[in-house]
Design a protein around this nucleic acid. Sequence first.
DNA 1: TATTGTTATACTCTATAACTATA
DNA 2: TATAGTTATAGAGTATAACAATA
Lengths: 162, 162
Amino acid sequence: MPRSQAPAHAASRTTAPAPAPLAERLGFLLKHAYQTYQSIQLPALAPIGLDGRLLAVLLVVQAEGPSLQQRLSERMGVDRTTMVALVDILEQTGFVERRRDAGDRRGYQINITGKGAALLRKATNVIHEVEQDFLAPLSPREQRQFRTLVTKLALERGRPRA
Amino acid sequence: MPRSQAPAHAASRTTAPAPAPLAERLGFLLKHAYQTYQSIQLPALAPIGLDGRLLAVLLVVQAEGPSLQQRLSERMGVDRTTMVALVDILEQTGFVERRRDAGDRRGYQINITGKGAALLRKATNVIHEVEQDFLAPLSPREQRQFRTLVTKLALERGRPRA
DNA sequence: TATTGTTATACTCTATAACTATA
DNA sequence: TATAGTTATAGAGTATAACAATA
C-alpha cells in the first residue's frame, strides 16, 4: 500500500460512488479501507513529526526495550536497509539514540529517549482519536466485532513479509 | 499498499508473531490484512495473465459498457496517465479494444472482447476462491459480518483519491 | 566465514507537466 | 479554450548487492 499513501491535500476529497462490481470485491474494499485510514492518520500524526512507520518503531522500542536495528526490522517486517533511514530520522529528532554495545561492537542498541517517551504518550492519544474517527460509521458493537475479525485475518495466518 | 505488493516468492513465507503494541493498532492490522489478501490473489491471478488492477478494468468495462479511458480512470480512482498503461496491456493481449468514436474523434471507447469476457468468467471463479481462502480463518457468520463491516468502512465515507 | 550497519543502486507504482490531435 | 490520450519525468517506497567494521 503502499506508494500507498494519498497526498495530504487529497485527504478530504472524495470521488464518485464505487462501481458496483468493485464494491463487492474484497481486495478493493480492503485497499480502500486502508487508504481511508491513512487519509485520517497522516494529517493527524504530521503535526507531531510522526508517520505510521516511525510510530511503529517507537512502539516496538518502548515495548521490547533497547533493540538492535536488525531485530527491529524483523519485528516490524521491514527490510534492514529501510530501518536505517527510519532510525536516522528518529535519532536526528532526538526521540531515540544509538548506543554501541560494549560486548559486541558490530551493532547498536536503539533506546527511546525521555523526549521520545513523551512524544509516544502524545501519539497514543492521537492514534486513539484516529481509530475512533475511522470506526465512526460503525456502532460500538460493530466496532468491537470489526477489531476482532480484522485481527484474525491479519495475524492468524502469519504475516507475509514486507 | 501496493509497493504495496510483496514479491511473489515471499507469498508463502511468514514472520515472527507481530509485537503486541502493533497487533492492537488498526493501521497495522488493516495494512497486513490487505497484504495477506494480496499474497493470495497475486499468484492466483498470475497464471491467467491478470492482476488486481487489470481485473478491475475488465470488471468496470463489462459492467458499464464501452467507456472512455478517462471515465474508467475516474471510476476506478486512478490517474488517467496510469490508465494508459493498463489499457495498453489489455489491448495487446486482446482482452479489450480501442475504438474511435466517429462523433468525437478525440477519445477512444474501450470495449471488452469475446476473449476478454471469457477471461473474466474464469477470473471471477478465481477471485471467489481467493476470497474464500482469505476468509477461511472466520466462521461463515463471521465472514458475512466482516464483508458488511469492511464495506461500510471503505465506502460509506467516500473514498480518498488514489 | 558470518553478522551489523551502511551506501549505492534499481525497480515498482503513481503523480505532475507538457505535448498532439481534436473539438 | 478545453478535452482525450499520450509521453517524459520525478517522486515515494522498498528491495538487492556490495562494502566496512567487527566477531
